[in-house]
Every structure is written in C-alpha cells, then in structure tokens.
Design a binder for these strands. Structure first.
Lengths: 226, 226
DNA sequence: TTCACGCTTGACGCTGCCTTGACGGGGGCT
DNA sequence: AGCCCCCGTCAAGGCAGCGTCAAGCGTGAA
C-alpha cells in the first residue's frame, strides 16, 4: 500500500515511516501544506495520513482543496486536540477518518488498512501491484524487486499475482490451487514445488523475506518480520 | 433508520429526538436503565444511543447485559468525562463507539450513520475484532496486543476468534471444542492445554488479564472481571 | 524432429503443532 | 471442614504439514 504522510514533526514522521514500511507499505513524506497538497494531487497513493496543524496550510484546508480537485484518496486526519469543533471540521472538510494524538501505531495501521480496503472496493485497483519493494505489472507480466528484474514462469507469476492482490491478507492453499488449475487440481502437493520456486526467485536473493507461511492455513505476502 | 435513545435528561432527549426525526429517522426513548434494556433487547432498532449515567442501571452495565443476551445492535455511548479508563470500560462493555459531552448533533448523526452502515454492510462477518487493547484480524490471521505482535498457532487463533466474537459473553467448553474439531472431539481434555498456551501468549506478558474462566461453565474474554 | 523450458511427481528429512498423560492446587458442594 | 471435581501447568512423544531436491514428462518453438 502506498501511503502519503503529511506531517511537519520530523520525529513523528520518522516513526510513522518506520512502522509503515516495516509493514510492507511504501511511504512518501511531505513536511508542509503546499507540498503535501501537490503530492496528494498526484494520485500516486492509496491513502493519506494528514496532520491537522501544518506550516503553510491548515490540514482541513488541504483536505478541502484536495476534494475540490476531485481527488478521492482516503484521508486519515491526525488531530492534537479532541474537541468537538475540531472533529466536525475535519470530517466536514472531507476526511474519511480521524485519530486523536496520542495514538497507537497499530491502531493507525488498522484504520489505514480499513480505509484502503473500503476504497479499493469501489474504485478498482491501479495497474501495477506492489508490496514493499516488490512489483508486478499484470499487463506486461514483468516483475521487479529492488530494481532487479525477476524471471518468473507462468505458474509463479500467477501465484505472485494472487498473493499481491490479497496482501496483506492470508491466502489458503485451496484458493491458490484454484487460481492455477481451476476445478481439476492435480494429485499430490504440486503447489509446494511452485511456492519453492517462487521463493527462490522472490525471496532467496534478498535480505527481507516477503512470503510467509501460516502453518495449516496458507500463505501471505507481507514485509513484517515474523 | 430506527434509533433508540436511552437518556434521562428530558431536554437532551428532546433535542436528540427532534434532530434525528428531522433527518428522517424514527426514534424511541427510554428514560432509565431497566426500561432501556427491555427496549434494546427487542431487536427493533438499527442503532442505540446510550447515556453513561442512568437511573436504575449504569450505561456500561446495560450494554454488557445487552451483549450477554446476544444482541449485536450497534451502541454509541455518551460519556460526560473523557478519561482513558472511561473509554476503555465503555468499549470493553461492548459499545461500538463513544462520544464525549458536549457534542454536536451533526457529529452524532454522522457517527450513527457510520455505525449503521458498518453493521449492515459487514453484519458481523469480517473486520478486525477488538477487546480492550487486544485485536485480531481474521483476514490476515494477525493478532496484536498493545503494539506487540502475538505468535499464535492455528488452534489458539481459532479459540481467540470465538472468544472475541462472543465477548463479553461466556463461551462454553463444548462450544469451543466444536469450533476446533467439529463433531469428533478427541478424548481427554485437550482444550485445557490450548487455553493454557493461548493464555501464555495473550495474558502472561501483560498486566491486565483478559481471559477469565467461569468455573464449571466455560470462558469469557473481558477487560475487567465483573 | 529436436531441443529447451516448465510442469509434475515422488522421496526424504525437518520443523512445529497437536495430543497425551501426569501432577498439584483451588473452588464448590455437602 | 472435608471431599471431589474442575482446572492450571508442564513435559514428552507422535504426526501432519512443509521445505527441499532431483529426475521424468509434456508442450511449444526452432
């Protein structure tokens, strides 16, 4: 998930960035209102974390301008004070959710995921799939990780596509098998071999592993360290 | 939308009623705890506005009793004081959201709409489960408590999911066993071992215990021992 | 036809989970 | 108080699930 963080406190921004990228999201930053609005208008992000107090332009104003430009990227607003006028104005400005400081990082991440899920439900996905530094373009069938091209077979590509589309959710073995062979799944446990090959291509040459197995359940594609 | 307002201040109740009915909702009233619980148990409302301070029965107690009866109607709790224990207890009692007085009627209406939408859309199916600072996302199979990730096995995860879904209600051993093994439950008392492991992961490292056992009956997952 | 690539099959060994059984403590009923 | 049943705790064994690898087979392209 591509997250844009608009926040002027460097330490808080760094905290957010660390946590979110550890969860496998790619994070962009803006330190003031105008540059935040520019980046937000680029349609390059799945969700936006927006501080209420910003140099150059107020967070609510930024959100309002963004909506006026027709951008529908979900916005999670951070407010320092939990006062009634504060909340109302934030939501009225077009924010989709808000969070009062201090907040827990896990709650923030959960809310971002919820926003993203809700939004991607009715707007469809953009072309290229991405988790952490791993990308796959279903159109060109090209996969990259950290600027190096991955050589994938057809089965491996299909597996990777499903895992990316469902990320960070868990995908059962049965579901993976259905996407490969439809209704007539071959005997034995062929999936294991393909997962092994996919791992050799995607995870083996790199430091952080993205493909994780959940014993007895299936597989999931995330960047978090087990 | 059918709204039930449980509130003992006549003027505030009248205000709420006027505003909500002006928005096209039908509104019922209760002025004290016991009658409120009765009306709330009738399953005739889409959402409930519940004051924290009530004659006859505390709002949190009412909410807890309502959940114990298996009623899942979304509850928006009104609290006079915005303290952390206050919030936690309200949410632990089974409330879905809370609002601190004084609040604006427009925000109340917006939150009621959000609760209703969420309830009718997801209908208890998916979404992240939460009790106190413990969360579990059935989709990603990830569990957290207070920003730390919990390593759970399949059996532990299933147990936790049932306990969270039924929280704060009691869950019998038989029911827990059925969710783990279906109809053919193994001999002996394997459940004890799994509950022990689950506790080691969920409660052992933390100060407050969430899993409570009811002697001879089963288990329940709540923040405070009733 | 020949070649090459990818898919399938099967075997082997390991990790981790589930199960089993035993012991001790505590709560409830008489 | 005393008994009994229920429950917490722990360790060890067994087994299912999984990673790994190598070799055979099918299929498409030159």
């Amino acid at each position: 998930m591509r997250v844009l963080v608009i926040e002027d406190h460097p330490d808080l921004a760094a905290n957010l960035g660390d946590y979110l990228s550890a969860q496998g999201h790619s994070v962009d930053f803006a330190g003031d209102g105008p540059s935040g609005l520019n980046l937000a208008s680029s349609d390059a992000h799945d969700v936006i974390v927006l501080d209420r107090l910003l140099p150059g332009m107020d967070g609510a104003t930024l959100c309002r301008k963004l909506r006026e430009r027709g951008k529908l990227t979900p916005v999670l607003m951070l407010t320092a004070l939990d006062t009634v006028p504060n909340r109302v104005e934030g939501l009225a400005a077009g924010a989709d959710d808000y969070l009062v400081k201090p907040f827990s990082l896990s709650e923030l991440a959960a809310r971002l995921n919820a926003l993203h899920r809700r939004a991607s439900g009715w707007s469809g996905g953009s072309g290229v799939l991405q988790v952490a530094d791993l990308t796959l373009d279903p159109e060109t069938a090209e996969a990259h990780r950290a600027d190096t091209r991955l050589e994938l077979t057809r089965a491996e590509r299909r597996l990777l596509e499903v895992l990316l589309r469902r990320s960070p959710r868990l995908v059962s073995r049965a579901e993976l098998e259905r996407t490969l062979w439809g209704d007539n799944v071959p005997d034995g446990d062929v999936l294991r071999a393909h997962m092994h090959n996919l791992r050799n291509a995607v995870d083996k040459p790199f430091a952080t592993k993205l493909i994780h197995t959940v014993h007895g359940e299936g597989y999931r594609l995330v960047a978090s360290a087990p």
